[in-house]
Structures are given as structure tokens and as C-alpha cells.
Amino acid sequence: MYTSRITGIGHYVPDNIVTNKDLEQFMETSDEWIQERTGIKERRWIDPKSDDMPSTMGVKAARQAIENAGLTPDDIDFIVFATLSPDYYFPGPGVQVQDLLGVKEIGALDVRNQCSGFVYGLSVADQFVKTGMYKNVLVIGSEYHSGGLEKSTRGRGVTVIFGDGAGAVVLSRSEDNQKGILSTHLHSEGKHAKELALIGPATNRWVDQIMEENDPDDTSYYPYMNGNFVFKHAVTRFGQVIHEALQTNGFQTSDIDMLIPHQANLRISQFIQKQMGLADENVYNNIMRYGNTTAASIPIALSEAYQEGKIKDGNLVCLAAFGSGFTWASALIRW
């Protein structure tokens, strides 16, 4: 079997910056309240007048990643696109990326694992490359949250957290078995699905039914999150899946050069960092600038950390995520 390595990386975020002070204009909140609970100072929200969508943002990040890999779009053999906010209900944005990149009729797969989506997508791509089926796989995480948030005091518990953006990597075949993705670990616990979910509209509750009910108190078409419940599960599952990756490969927490957790809440990341005894320079967080960008959060953070020289050749890098589903996942990489 071959080894798969990340050979290219890139990210894109909208130009429009929305600060906590900006949110005070249309909901009862404060910069202090938001930072204390989440660590977020600002986020990027798409300007509705722009052409940014999950697919187009994904392509912008993808072009960076492809160029960074020293490849052209025609070198890509397969696309994996992770998102909870596709341009359309169907089809998924993977096929849009194929079209926008102007490449041959390669396969495109959409992954719907929300906050864990990018790591799930990376794991899928890893299998395709390792078995020799594909040589270069493009993996994208892209989200457009801001258009579907309840921008009011009632919805502030969710709205203040989420931002828009995209990140991408190129995963390529390698015969160097000392570097690349060492292992990936995927889990789910569906009994908690409704604790972090968007219930409707959906196939069991279509738009016409919602309109017929005409209930002004109906919030089913906005994201719902049981914050404390999710937090308690997140800090447990994060630790478990990181240790699983380390133990599988014979490492200890002290061997981690860079941990990139899903940017759900700075308090979760800080809890995990303290629990594992990692120094500040061994954990990368950017939630204070972008908020939670769900499937895009890990590739955006990974791209920034790499660009800032915080990930170097030979480093042991761990990616870990937890979110809606519940799903959680990790990937251990020798850079």
C-alpha cells in the first residue's frame, strides 16, 4: 500500500468582518459576554452582495492548495467536499467544484458530518490514495452559516458563535512510509443527534408544512444547540479520540508538535490543552478571529499554522474534531 501525504494547503475567508460590537446593534449581547463564553472576538460573514457560496469559497481555497502542491487542477483525480451548508439542498457542492475548476469528469463525493466533516473527508481520501485508486485527492471543508442564523436576542446563543469560510488540502500518493497520514479514527453517537441540529425544513417536515402551521414561535428552521450538554460531551470525546490516535501509533501526548482542534469554543480547546499538558506553541487556535466555521475550521487553522511556519517538516500533527451527530474524529500526521 502507498502512503498519503498532504502536499498542498490553502484557505479562504470572506472580507466582511463582523465584530462582537457589531452584534450588539441587533441583539442583547456584549463583547465581554461573548468572549467570556466562547473566546470569539470577531467572525467573517459573507456579504450577500458578493458571489461567495460554499462551492465558490471552496474553489478559492482549492486553487491555493493545488498551486501550493505544485500541481494543476487537471492533476486532481477525485474531490471530497465536507459541508453542512451546501449551495443547494441537492446536488451537493462537490460537483460544482468539478465544474468551476474546469477539470475532466472526475468523481465528487459530499460528506455530511458537520464539525467532524473535514477529518471524515480526509479519512475517506486517505483510503482512496493508500489503496492506489487515486493519486491526488482534493479535500475541501466550506461553510456559509451566516445566511441561516437567527440574528436576534432569541438566537444569540448560536448566532454569536458561527462564521463563514473554507479550507482545502491536496492529499497525494507517496512511497515514503515514514511521513504522511499515520491513522484516522472516526466515531458517532446518534442518540444525541437532536442536541445540536437543524430540524426543519427537512424531508420529514417540508416547507409547506411549516408555512401551514404558521407558528411565530417555531424555530425549527434555525440551528439548535444544547450548549452545556454539547460542551460536556466534547471535552470527553476530544481527549478520547486524541489518545486513541496516539496509542495506535505508539506515541504520547508529549510527542505532539501541533494539535489543531476543531474551533468550536476556545474554552474547549483550553481545557483539552491543559488536560494534555501541552504548551501554547503546540496548540493552534484561531476561533477568536473566525468563530466556528464547522467543516472549514480545521483546514483553515491548518493552513494558517502552516503559513505561519508553526508546522515544519517531520512534525507530529494531530487533528481532532467533535460536533453534531454526535460525531468525533482524529487524524495523526507525520508532516
Rank of each mutant, 00 (worst) to 15 (best):
Q273K: 15
A305V: 04
N292R: 08
N286F: 02
H262N: 14
P299E: 01
S254E: 15
G309P: 04
L316N: 01
A295G: 04
D313C: 01
L278Y: 12
L278Q: 10
R267V: 07
Q270T: 12
I298L: 06
F271R: 13
L319G: 07
I260Y: 07
N265L: 10
A301R: 04
L316M: 07
G325V: 01
A321Q: 05
T253C: 06
N285G: 09
T253N: 11
L278V: 11
P261C: 13
A295F: 05
D255I: 11
I256R: 12
F251M: 07
M258K: 15
R289I: 00
K310P: 08
M288S: 15
Q263S: 07
D255G: 08
D257W: 13
L259K: 06
N282I: 05
Q263M: 06
N286C: 15
L316G: 00
N282V: 05
G250Q: 13
R267A: 08
Q252C: 08
H262R: 12
T293I: 12
A264L: 09
I300K: 00
A320R: 09
A279H: 14
S330C: 06
A321T: 13
S303T: 01
Y290E: 09
D257I: 09
Q263R: 10
N286R: 09
G309L: 02
K312L: 14
W328L: 03
I300T: 01
L278E: 06
S324I: 02
G314L: 12
N265H: 10
Q275C: 03
G277R: 07
W328A: 01
L302D: 02
R289P: 00
A301S: 15
L266S: 13
T253R: 10
N292Y: 06
R289S: 02
S297Q: 07
I272W: 10
I256F: 10
I268S: 12
L266Q: 14
F322E: 05
N292K: 06
P261Q: 10
K274D: 15
N285K: 04
E308K: 15
A305G: 12
I300G: 00
I268H: 12
V283H: 05
Q252N: 14
F251A: 03
G323L: 02
I311L: 02
T253K: 12
A279L: 15
M258L: 15
V283C: 10
I287E: 08
A296W: 03
K310A: 10
V317H: 02
I256C: 09
Q252L: 12
M288H: 15
T327E: 03
S324A: 15
Y290W: 12
F271I: 09
I287A: 11
V283T: 10
S254F: 05
I311A: 03
L316W: 04
S330N: 05
Q263E: 02
T253S: 14
E304K: 08
Y306C: 09
